[in-house]
Design a protein around this nucleic acid. Structure first.
Lengths: 165, 165
DNA sequence: ATAGTAACTATGATAAACATAGTAACAAGC
DNA sequence: GCTTGTTACTATGTTTATCATAGTTACTAT
């Protein structure tokens, strides 16, 4: 697609975010970063993105300061991708996306008896937070690092199957 | 771009949302819907999207049940686009995007003295909520309908200039 | 009869995404 | 020292999306 009017200098905050996050590939990479993935091949396997698209988006994310490349070995030098503070702050966006999808993007019963594809527990107090942005037990605001995610069996199986290929 | 592996049936909630929201045009349309825009030409003027792309995305949004078309006149019949409940629930995603951008996507001082491109007030108690997801005064969780947005002069001017063209 | 309005659709050029294959820089085993 | 394996990419050619611009439809107003 031709790169139409660039929005990175608009005064609208949603426009600015959209320039980064309004991209399927970027969202899938961010998701996997929040799942703890750091290496090129692992992103490829989990996201299903081709190497070229993945490479391009990782560069974009690095340039935006969302991700940083860190060498994890010499000879040959290999790099891992880590979220920066700016990147970690995007957790709230992905969490909002998850909350919306859990409520609106599944047909009833699709996720099994429990009803959620992904479950989050507040690390501090151990409460299952459901789809809330503040802990229903202790009232604390929930951000990156406060939550421990747990995939449903169906989601876990799907991801393992993807990597196995 | 070829529509590669479709994610609308993945078990991952972020993947499902990404299929809809991982698209710049969709995000711009949603933003304008939350600003109260309802007509084709107004979307075009405010978003800067071409008529074909706009038309395509409005159809997609309607098909996903995020938006519904309502006639507002006969002879000739003309339609407006309104957010459904499912659509209104996406507010949290856009609000998270706004929060992130306000904090991370502007250079210091860019938005003027006040520091925010967009200000939100809690309708119930009148408090300026800043970048919070729960009201700092009364503690209530903030969703669509609870907040009244107010654009900074710079943002307002930018939008008016766009429509004037 | 002409001009205006609103919501699109059609067309051709450009750019992005895809699948697949290939490269670079090494380590380990035979 | 030659082949195989590993990791992170880059290169190539085809398919598909997006863009800018022009045109269409169905009316109302002058």
């Amino acid at each position: 697609m031709p790169r139409r009017a660039d929005l990175s200098d608009t005064f609208c905050p949603v426009g600015r975010s959209a320039e980064l996050v309004g991209d399927r590939a970027v969202l899938l990479i961010l998701r996997d970063l929040f799942f703890g993935i750091r290496r090129f091949e692992a992103f490829q396997a989990n996201s299903g993105l081709g190497p070229q698209l993945l490479s391009d988006r990782l560069k974009r994310l690095e340039q935006e300061g969302v991700v940083e490349r860190r060498p994890y070995q010499q000879r040959p030098t290999r790099y891992e991708y880590w979220l920066t503070e700016k990147g970690k702050a995007l957790f709230d966006v992905l969490y909002a996306m998850r909350n919306w999808a859990e409520r609106w993007a599944y047909v009833p019963g699709e996720t099994g008896d429990d009803g959620l594809a992904m479950r989050y527990v507040h690390r501090n107090c151990g409460a299952d937070v459901g789809l809330a942005t503040a802990c229903p037990e202790c009232g604390e605001t929930l951000g990156y690092g406060d939550l421990k995610g747990e995939m449903s069996p169906a989601l876990l199986a799907e991801r393992q199957a993807r990597v196995a290929r």
